[in-house]
Amino acid sequence: MHTKLSWVYLVIAAAGLITAWIFNGLAVMNSEDYAGAWFGTAVDWVLSADLTIVAIAVVVFMITESRRIGMKRVWLYILLSGVTAMAFTFPLFMAMRERRLGELSSTAPALKN
């Protein structure tokens, strides 16, 4: 189960990375104003605040969950989200989390004996 779910998350991560590359590339080529786009109107503020709050919750989850299950270098996912997209790094983290949970569940019976 963990392996299948990790592949689902990897596909989502790939989609997040590809869309980030495409749309950020278009924005850069068109010299678009990121700050103006994020905070130009009241609707922009709502979406920006919503995504910012979700991103903060995701980072807190990534840190606490990685500590709980013994994942290393979670700071790399957080750093990568600043240069790629949270739509890439969070599903990537979830894929690696599923793999780690699979490792833990496969070794758990051996530890009990």
Rank of each mutant, 00 (worst) to 15 (best):
P91G: 02
E103L: 06
A13Q: 01
S66Y: 06
W38P: 03
L47P: 02
L101I: 10
V83C: 11
R67W: 13
W21M: 10
L51P: 03
L26A: 14
M62S: 03
A20D: 15
T52Y: 06
K4H: 05
A95Q: 03
V43L: 08
W45I: 07
L92V: 01
E65A: 14
K112Y: 08
L92W: 01
A15L: 15
F90V: 00
P91Y: 01
G102C: 13
I63L: 13
S105M: 15
V43W: 07
S105D: 15
T64Y: 10
F23I: 08
A20M: 13
G82Q: 15
M94A: 07
F88S: 00
E32D: 10
K112R: 11
A85Q: 01
M1N: 04
V60Y: 15
H2I: 08
V74Q: 06
I56R: 04
V54A: 04
A110G: 05
G40H: 02
R97L: 13
Y77W: 08
V46M: 11
L92R: 00
A49F: 02
L76V: 12
E103C: 02
T52E: 06
S81V: 05
S105K: 14
E32K: 14
R100H: 10
T107D: 03
M94V: 04
M29L: 11
S81M: 08
L92E: 00
I53G: 05
T64A: 10
N30Y: 12
R73H: 13
V28H: 03
L5A: 01
M62Q: 05
R67N: 11
